[in-house]
């Protein structure tokens, strides 16, 4: 099938952002001191599409760190309106690993019991993905999806790929194509441009060096190695700080708390990102804590993502984005743990 595509000169990216901003809130990766962060793009801000990863994934625009579920007056009812969207939000520069994670989110927050707060955001979100060109040593997307640094036909409204002085812009949805209706920004793409993309992707794929071998066998492999001594060794290093999960694009867990005001009448029921690595995550009312041990918590994250997720949601819980490796202060690296259990040589 022929791909529907146009060309956008790199020099025109900012112009495009500006015209999109007229009817949308546009977010994109912006460099701070050390890391990239998805921020609202305001006039004069430079968006960077050649970046390796943002610290917090774009999931925050669909499932924010904190979200009000219910505003209540204890003796006088409640209001439960999900956030209103005056205009749609565009997330520009979503990497394939993060776009795949959003597809995972669609499963989690969908199903028989869809989450209206999530879908209210999701249905008002346009994803402009970008083929990754600068993977680093922590990336291992190729082990989890053979398309690796790019997306094949789904998971995006538009997909940009760097082909030199331009981006090839492929259309994934009607909503995406509506963002290409601006005069003077886009040119027709030719076969040649398509080839340039394919070549660029091939080059990037070569750069993704880190691997998890035998992904389909992970469930059985992990179950066989639940008592492996590597776990205790890694547990000694672990700070249980929750970082690995908070930066993870597929982690979705949240806590719910009622915050009351001094009049003891008004308050908000709020959900806040939670983490299975934290001590009270599996604690129940009478004090029983089913994952009190640090080791059980450390294992749960990895087992959940790599062994159980497939059966639960039909995909893996990891997209190989490398965040949990890069941002762990204790250098805990699940790909190296797996390698060590397998007896493979571990790079220092």
């Amino acid at each position: 099938m022929e791909r529907e595509a146009v060309i956008l000169k790199k020099s025109k990216v900012n112009d495009w952002v500006n015209v999109m901003r007229e009817d949308h809130t546009v977010y994109g990766p912006v460099k701070y001191k050390y890391d990239y962060h998805f921020k609202e793009l305001e006039p004069g801000m430079e968006v960077t599409l050649e970046y390796t990863r943002s610290m917090i994934p774009p999931k925050k625009f669909l499932h924010p760190q904190e979200e009000n579920l219910i505003t209540y007056r204890r003796n006088d009812g409640m209001e439960t309106t999900p956030t209103k969207f005056e205009q749609k939000q565009v997330i520009l520069g979503v990497h394939p690993c993060d776009a795949r994670a959003i597809e995972v989110y669609d499963e989690i927050f969908g199903g028989d019991l869809p989450d209206v707060y999530y879908w209210n955001r999701r249905n008002n979100t346009i994803i402009i993905a970008v083929t990754c060109t600068v993977p680093d040593e922590n990336c291992f997307c190729m082990s989890l999806d053979e398309s690796g640094p790019t997306l094949e036909k789904k998971g995006y409204d538009l997909l940009l790929t760097d082909i030199g002085d331009s981006y090839l812009v492929e259309v994934g949805s009607m909503e995406g194509s509506l963002l290409l209706q601006f005069e003077g920004l886009f040119e027709k793409a030719t076969e040649e441009h398509m080839h340039a993309k394919d070549k660029s992707v091939e080059v990037t794929k070569m750069k993704v060096q880190r691997k998890i071998p035998d992904v389909p066998g992970l469930h059985d492999f992990l179950e066989h190695n639940y008592e492996n001594e590597v776990w205790a060794k890694e547990t000694k290093k672990c700070l249980s700080c929750g970082t690995c999960t908070l930066v993870c694009p597929t982690c979705f867990c949240y806590h719910v708390e009622d915050f009351n005001r001094f009049n003891l009448e008004d308050g908000n029921r709020v959900r806040i990102w939670d983490s299975c690595q934290l001590i009270d995550f599996a604690e129940v009312a009478m004090g029983e804590n089913f994952r009190k041990d640090r080791e059980a918590r450390l294992k749960w994250r990895i087992y959940h993502k790599l062994a159980y997720w497939q059966e639960q949601f039909g995909t893996l819980g990891c997209t190989g984005c490398g965040r949990c490796i890069q941002y762990c202060p204790a250098d805990i690296d699940m790909t190296e743990i797996l390698a060590e259990i397998r007896g493979d040589k571990v790079h220092a």
Partner: peptide, 15 residues
């Protein structure tokens, strides 16, 4: 019995 915040398979605690 497990910790539950949502009851509908979203909050993740009871997995």
């Amino acid at each position: 019995e497990r910790r539950m915040k949502c009851g509908v398979g979203k909050c993740g605690h009871c997995q």
